[in-house]
């Protein structure tokens, strides 16, 4: 059974239909990517899943419909969003940011253990744990945002444009982190404009175009698909 099952998802923003009824699913342990051009509705889809924007349709997570739940209730159920543009708490320290990720949890000893494993995964954050998040580089902030989401012990991680605004070298590093998170068994839904990177890391992909899903296949197949190469991988 799939962990996340989306059917007929529609999102309207001030009169504009940004997502026009899409279906997709993510199975446990999978990395699935949603690729497409700017404004295709990818981020909106992710925000709708995280209940940040109102939506219609059916979104079943672990067999339960989550579209009527408030956003803050999702974290406790293991569904975590890493928001677009990082969204770290700038004046809190790195360690405080990470602890905020465990806000819904009350199992203090377990939180300390998870903090340790986040530091193991992201050693850079350990070095900078006393520094305020606002003083980190863009890539470090992205890693902090991922680390913070992991502190909530999610089972499904929603990543919104993790490469946005980062230097190429940092993008590589962030994707290495995503890969190792997935290797630890995490289920990931990744929204990304950088199609090549996203498809390299994902097992399956969906291509979005002006609010609808136009293509779906195994990531390797999509990488070789002439239409995808033409539109999103810059030809060749």
């Amino acid at each position: 059974m799939s962990m996340l099952q989306v059917q007929g998802l529609k999102v309207a923003y001030g009169g504009i239909q940004a997502v026009k009824g899409i279906d997709f699913e993510v199975a446990a342990g999978e990395v699935v990517c949603l690729i497409g051009a700017n404004g295709a509705g990818k981020s909106t889809t992710l925000k709708a899943l995280a209940r940040m924007v109102p939506a219609q349709g059916s979104v079943r997570y672990d067999g339960h419909d989550i579209l009527h739940l408030p956003p803050h209730a999702l974290v406790g159920r293991g569904l975590a969003l890493v928001p677009e543009g990082r969204g770290v708490f700038g004046r809190l320290t790195v360690a405080e940011n990470l602890r905020m990720g465990a806000y819904t949890r009350r199992d203090t000893p377990e939180i300390a253990r998870d903090l340790e494993s986040v530091f193991e995964l992201l050693p850079r954050l350990r070095e900078r744990q006393r520094q305020t998040a606002g003083t980190l580089s863009g890539g470090e902030q992205q890693m902090l945002a991922i680390g913070r989401a992991l502190m909530g012990r999610p089972r499904l991680l929603l990543l919104d444009e993790p490469s946005m605004g980062l230097a190429p070298i940092m993008v590589q590093k962030v994707f290495e982190v995503i890969r190792s998170v997935s290797q630890q068994g995490m289920t990931i839904l990744l929204v990304e404009q950088n199609a090549r990177l996203a498809l390299a890391i994902a097992s399956r992909g969906y291509v979005m175009e002006s609010g609808t899903i136009t293509l779906t296949d195994a990531a390797a197949t999509l990488l070789d698909d002439p239409r995808v190469r033409e539109a999103y991988l810059g030809g060749e």
């Binding site: 956003p71 803050h72 806000y103 909530g152």
Partner: peptide, 21 residues
């Protein structure tokens, strides 16, 4: 701590499971 988080970034606060309302 929740107030602090909301003041810094409301969306991120919500993503941390804080009932911002």
């Amino acid at each position: 701590r929740a107030w602090e988080a909301i003041r810094e970034d409301e969306i991120a606060a919500r993503a941390c499971g804080i009932n911002t309302r």
